[in-house]
Design a protein around this nucleic acid. Structure first.
Length: 518
RNA sequence: GCCCCCGUCGUCUAAUGGUUAGGACACCAGACUUUCAAUCUGCCAACAGGAGUUCGAUUCUCCUCGGGGGUACCA
């Protein structure tokens, strides 16, 4: 090991990690937000630290109560719990920034009085005008004009009825910090203009409220999206001032989580359906699967295992292992991982979680187990082991058990199922009906049915298995994809099975005819 | 324009100053199977490029290229 091991050495984390999740309630929870919450949660749980949940609702124009409730709903559904903050309270309440106006006003005044902030009367138009005249690009930003305003000039502006915004004075020096994920990052002197912390009307901005609350809540590790990376130097400067004022005691350590990208090279948009947490839930993602997948966006559990539980994740998670490069959200892999987790569910748990989807699709009579009919319970219990390994999303359960729970004696074949019907199918149906009629009720078992039908249709009548069982499956399930045929027959019983076979037999001529036309 | 971040199979990633660069998803092929799924087997597939350091770089440094973000009285 040479001396430059210094460079690759991990940063020490605080002994008592205090992380926070502090979303703005401005829309439906999306996967990027969830990933941020998850990593903060995992870091807190791994280190035995605290997770603080705070709401940054300082933007009246965009914040909604609905969004707030959705965020809470999302965290609860996912099992991401927190130690201080919304609902649970804590030593630094309130945890809605909209209720902390007095605190921000007081600190803003301290900043102003100490000369760390100053009144700025420039309008956006005036700034732009000055930049244009000086030959600076339009994106140059604020030019520091109001820093040197005399008392006379300020009085003049006030006399005109103008009100000042408050800006933080940025020092003319490089600003460096050591990112937990990216290592040392330096912003060049002069690249960050003086920025507004309070609007002329007195509204505090994120630029003030976020560091102030982190300081007051003694947050020492800030894990947030990469989009906030460029606001870090501003916050560090503010922290320095807050420390001088005795409001903060430390500058937290920062870790900027990589973007979650959508298709192409675009950050996953909130409008993208794939990013919408509730749409994913409606599709039938279970929390275990979704969280597992999201954890792999920037982090890996081990070199050769990518299926893991949250308990396992908590044991291993260290934000310093997170990768810095952006990750694409791959819905196919997310589904594959979800499928693995569905298979690991206890069968009754699998049923319970599926019921709301079944109810929504009109397949069962209630949305929870206790209110289902005995018949429904019985069928679901029998069907669960057949269905559980065959679905990747909970929304697929309806299609699999629909035919088992249906009281219909004829299930019109879906498109894919029609393809299975051939010109000799009517004969197969006739033969199977004849054979099955001879089976007594107590012999109506999957295994025996399989043996019997194989013997009669395949061995004796000479049909290929595919030809023999295809039409029977279509009659029983109406679908191309279904639970195993013979178990299905056992579950729905002799009467229903024969009714469906008979009814398909009567319709099959028409079906074949219209198929031929196409 | 200026500032900042990122760059290993199509995608998510692992590892390493010396390896046949590993796994997963997807894909393709095969086995099994009454369908689908699952399972098993196999296939395809990557260190962006160029210099430098070094006996030796995917790994360290620099440059280029490429991608992304910021440059708000949003967060």
């Amino acid at each position: 090991m040479s001396d430059d091991s210094e460079k690759t050495a991990r940063q020490e984390l605080p002994k008592d990690v205090r992380v926070r999740f502090c979303p703005s309630p401005t829309g439906i929870p999306h996967v990027g937000m969830v990933r941020t919450a998850l990593f903060n949660w995992a870091e807190a749980r791994h280190t035995g630290g605290k997770l603080i949940f705070r709401i940054e609702d300082t933007d009246n124009a965009r914040d909604t109560d609905k969004s707030f409730h959705q965020i809470v709903d999302a965290l609860k559904w996912l099992g991401i719990d927190w130690d201080e903050g919304i609902e649970v309270g804590g030593p630094d309440a309130p945890y809605f920034q909209s209720q902390r106006g007095d605190i921000y006003a007081k600190i803003a005044k301290q900043l102003l009085d100490a000369g760390y902030a100053y009144e700025s009367y420039s309008t956006a138009e005036e700034i732009e005008e000055r930049n244009k005249k000086a030959g600076r690009p339009a994106q140059f930003g604020y030019d520091g004009y109001d820093r040197t305003l005399t008392d006379e000039q300020k009085a003049q502006f006030k006399a005109e009825g103008r009100k000042p915004a408050l800006r933080i004075k940025m020092p003319d020096e490089d600003i460096t910090f050591n990112d937990l994920i990216r290592g040392p990052i330096t912003f060049k002197a002069g690249s960050v203009p003086d920025y507004v912390i309070v609007r002329p009307n007195g509204d505090p901005l994120y630029t003030l409220t976020n560091p102030v609350d982190d300081a007051l809540m003694r947050v020492n590790v800030v894990l947030r999206g990469e989009d906030l990376l460029s606001s870090t130097p501003r916050q560090i400067v503010l922290y320095r001032y807050l420390i001088k004022l005795g409001i903060a005691s430390i500058i937290p350590q920062f870790g900027h989580l990589p973007y979650v990208m959508g298709k192409g090279h675009k950050k996953l948009s909130k409008r993208d359906p794939q990013s919408n947490l509730f749409l994913l839930r409606d599709q039938g993602f279970i929390k275990e699967g979704l969280l597992n997948y999201l954890a792999e966006l920037g982090w890996s559990y081990s070199a050769d295992q990518d299926i893991f539980s949250m308990d396992q994740m908590v044991k291993k998670f260290d934000v310093r292992d997170v990768k810095a490069n952006p990750a694409h959200f791959d819905i196919d892999k997310a589904i594959a991982i979800n499928a693995e987790h569905i298979r690991m569910l206890d069968p009754q748990d699998f049923i319970n979680r599926s019921i709301p989807y079944l109810k929504k699709d009109g397949i069962v009579s209630a949305d929870n187990w206790d209110q289902l009919t005995g018949h429904e319970q019985e069928i679901l219990r029998a069907a669960a082991p057949l269905v559980q390994p065959r679905v990747r999303l909970l929304s697929e359960v309806s299609g699999m058990v629909g035919s088992l729970l249906s009281n219909e004696e004829y299930l019109a074949p879906e498109k894919g199922a029609i393809k299975q019907l051939k010109s000799d199918s009517p004969d197969v149906l006739d033969a199977s009906i004849k054979v099955l009629n001879g089976v007594s009720d107590d012999q109506w078992k999957a295994h025996d049915l399989h043996v019997l039908l194989t013997d009669q249709l395949v061995d004796k009548a000479g049909y290929k298995p595919r030809k023999a069982f295809g039409p029977i499956r279509v009659a029983v399930s109406g679908r191309r994809v279904s639970p195993p045929l013979f178990q299905s027959m056992e579950i729905i019983g002799k009467t229903m099975t024969i009714a469906r076979l008979t009814n398909l037999r009567t319709h099959i001529a028409d079906i074949l005819a219209s198929k031929a036309q196409q």
